[in-house]
Structures are given as C-alpha cells and as structure tokens.
Design a binder for these strands. Structure first.
Length: 228
DNA sequence: CATCAGATCTGCT
DNA sequence: GCAGATCTGATGG
C-alpha cells in the first residue's frame, strides 16, 4: 500500500465515537506474508468507551495482558479470542493510557475475493462449510471478517499506522503492513448516511447496553444482523 | 424470518 | 467452575 494512503496516528487519536464514524468508508487492508492483498470497505463499527463502559473489556480499569492493546497508542490493533473459536478485531483510539477502542463489525469485501471466499468456506483447522455462502455473508460480523481476512491473535498489538506520523512506539512490530487501514479517497461520510443503534451481543441492561454506539453505512447490504 | 442449541477455549473467580 | 463484544445448522412459521 502506498504510504500516502495510510492513515496517520492523528486520525485514530480521537474519541471512539468519532473514530467509529470516521472509519466507515475506509478500507481495511490485510497483506499476507506471500504478498496477497485482501481488502474491504468498512461498513459497520462499534465504539467501546473504556473504564465507565460496562460493556467494554476495560470496564473499571481492567488492565490484563489480554487487553493491553486497548491501553496502547491510537491505531493499535486489539484482537481478542472469544467463545472458544472466534476472533474479533478492534482499533484502539485516544492516547496511550486511555483504554478505548472501536470494534470492526463488518466490511464489504473488495479485493482478494477468491481467497476470502476460501477462508470462509473452509477455515483453517476446521471442516468445510456445508451450505454455500453469499457475498454478503462473507464479512458481515466481527468474527466473520476476521476469518475472511485471516486475522488472529498474532496480529494483536500491531501498529496499524506502521510508524506514520508521530506518537509512541508500537508494542509489537511483526510483519510490517500485515494489517492497515487506507483512508477514504473522498470526504468522510455525511451524518445523514450513517445509521446508529445499540451495540450487539451485550447481556447487561443498563444505559451502556442501550446506548447508540453502533454505526452502520445506511443501506449497505454488507452489515451484520440485526439490521438497523 | 425467528429462535435455539452446540461448538470450544481463555481469562478471571 | 463459568460467562463471554459469535456463528452455524436445524427446526418451525
């Protein structure tokens, strides 16, 4: 990916609600070790507000090795494993020491469709899928998009800005550019084309459970369920 | 389309 | 031990 299309640290160094909105329409890019490029347009995000947010992994100031990336500098990948078989990818926001992040919930795949389909049809170490997949089911969910893009814990802690801009050092620097976000070529999406709703999969029942912290591109058929 | 059980593992109690 | 920012296949309308 040409350097000028990468997002800088400054892009991510804002509050998670702002970042969740700004990320819509940007391109998630996964470059495999053999150079294969997988990409998709981000169409759904969720903001997690950290210490006061009962639904956030860092609620109450929790700071364990697993959630270290949420405390890291803006633009750090936070990839966690859950339900015994799924990965989910977030991008940390705000400055180092402020444990907030944005969960990537769905993308519209645009490059590397053949491999994306293969990754979803027959995930590594599992039995091949029984039923056929439609294109809109390829990346319409946080765990689905990780499967499609071969994103797992080895990418946790990666600096998505790859050193562009100023800021602190990344926690980890494995394969440079293995994971990145490209900026939108045009202006950010207008508020009128962003629909909000409550976050998905929360079991609580407080103001955080129902807060409109989920953001989707209006009318996109590539978002997850429940549709807004 | 809606609901539901099962899969399967990590982190924390 | 147990709950969890999930997904799939099956069943019923």
């Amino acid at each position: 990916m040409p350097p000028h299309t990468m997002l800088t640290r400054g892009f991510f160094a804002t509050d998670p609600v702002t970042l969740a909105r700004k990320l819509l329409g940007c391109t998630l890019v996964r470059t495999l070790s053999d150079g294969t490029r997988l990409a998709g347009t981000i169409v759904e995000t969720e903001a997690y507000l950290g210490i006061p947010d009962t639904a956030a992994h860092t609620f109450g100031g929790r700071r364990t090795p697993r959630v270290a990336s949420m405390w890291a500098a803006a633009g750090t990948a936070y990839v966690y494993f859950t339900y015994g078989m799924h990965h989910c990818m977030n991008i940390s926001a705000e400055a180092e020491g402020i444990p907030v992040a944005v969960l990537l919930r769905a993308v519209e795949p645009t490059e590397g469709l053949d491999l994306i389909r293969a990754n979803r049809a027959h995930p590594a170490g599992t039995k091949p899928r029984k039923n056929p997949l439609t294109d809109r089911d390829l990346c319409s969910g946080p765990a689905r998009l990780c499967q499609a893009f071969a994103i797992d814990r080895t990418l946790d802690g990666l600096d998505l800005t790859a050193g562009v801009g100023s800021g602190s050092k990344p926690r980890r620097m494995p394969r440079l550019g293995a994971l990145a976000v490209e900026r939108r070529k045009t202006a950010p999406l207008a508020d009128s084309s962003i629909v909000t709703g409550p976050r998905v999969g929360l079991s609580g029942d407080d103001k955080w459970t129902h807060a409109p912290l989920r953001f989707v591109v209006a009318g996109s058929p590539y978002t997850s369920r429940p549709r807004l």
